[in-house]
Design a protein around this nucleic acid. Structure first.
Length: 234
DNA sequence: CGGCTTTGACCGGCGC
DNA sequence: GCGCCGGTCAAAGCCG
């Protein structure tokens, strides 16, 4: 009987219980402003049905190779992300970071970033959903001809994982030491030029089908190159 | 002073 | 039915 009354103040200080009561009153005004994102989602706010929305949500996985010294979990893709959580999963001793798109509050896109268990120099970013707003860098950046980057401009490699959709691996490290890396077993598989050609074609076709994701990847590369430009001044 | 990151707790789903 | 685990929230702290 001791601890039982003690829970009252605990729940009082600890938010979500009381908060949930309040939240359902503003249920009607959710994105009453824009609404261009999911105009067809009028059936989903009934909240009762086991929504398959997250199943339909576009899930893209991007493997970004970074410097091993880079301990951060930040994947520069041109969008503005706000970190809202971090967890250590059983799957991987490295913590997984959770990001939301902070550029547009109504943007449903979420991003999970975790280092690969096998090769900790590889960041695996999982994007869920699609951006319902234009690319932030396009808004503020001048529409110069240099904006249209091609994936071929950087050393990149793609691997189509059969588990859950395409996995794009971007080697964003400096091109000089890319050969003697041999860090992951995937690098050995990438050795043959035919395989790389195959991967490039697969990646190209995959990206062609998904223009928004192509933009995101291009932005990621451009952002990284831009960073290198600032660092190395070339 | 405002915004972002960190961090611990809570919640819901799933497996046993 | 219980326990585990992934995902999310929100207060506190930190930085620009």
């Amino acid at each position: 009987m001791t601890k039982n009354p003690g829970t009252s103040e605990l729940s009082a200080s600890r938010k979500r219980k009381a908060e949930s009561i309040i939240t359902n009153i503003n249920n009607d005004n959710n994105n009453g402003t824009t609404g261009q994102s999911e105009s067809s989602s009028s059936d989903e706010d009934s909240c009762k049905k086991p929504r398959e929305e997250h199943i339909k949500a576009k899930i893209s996985r991007v493997c970004v190779r970074t410097e091993t010294s880079d301990t951060g979990l930040v994947v520069k893709d041109g969008y503005q992300w706000r970190k809202y959580g971090q967890k250590v999963t059983r799957d991987n001793p490295c913590p997984r970071a959770y990001f939301k798109c902070s550029f547009a509050p109504s943007c449903p896109v979420k991003k999970k970033v975790q280092r690969s268990a096998e090769d900790q120099s590889v960041l695996v970013a999982t994007y869920e959903g699609e951006h319902n707003h234009p690319h932030p860098s396009k808004l503020e950046a001048t529409p110069g001809p240099n904006r249209c980057l091609t994936l071929a401009s950087v050393p990149c490699s793609a691997s189509l994982s059969s588990s859950s959709g395409p996995t794009i691996t971007l080697d964003l490290t400096k091109p000089k030491s890319s050969n003697d890396a041999k860090t992951s077993s995937t690098d050995r598989r990438m050795g043959s030029p035919e395989f790389q050609q195959f991967l490039v074609e697969q990646m190209a076709s995959s990206l062609t089908k998904d223009p928004s994701f192509k933009a995101a990847v291009a932005a990621a590369i451009s952002g990284n190159i831009f960073k290198q430009n600032q660092t190395e001044k070339w």
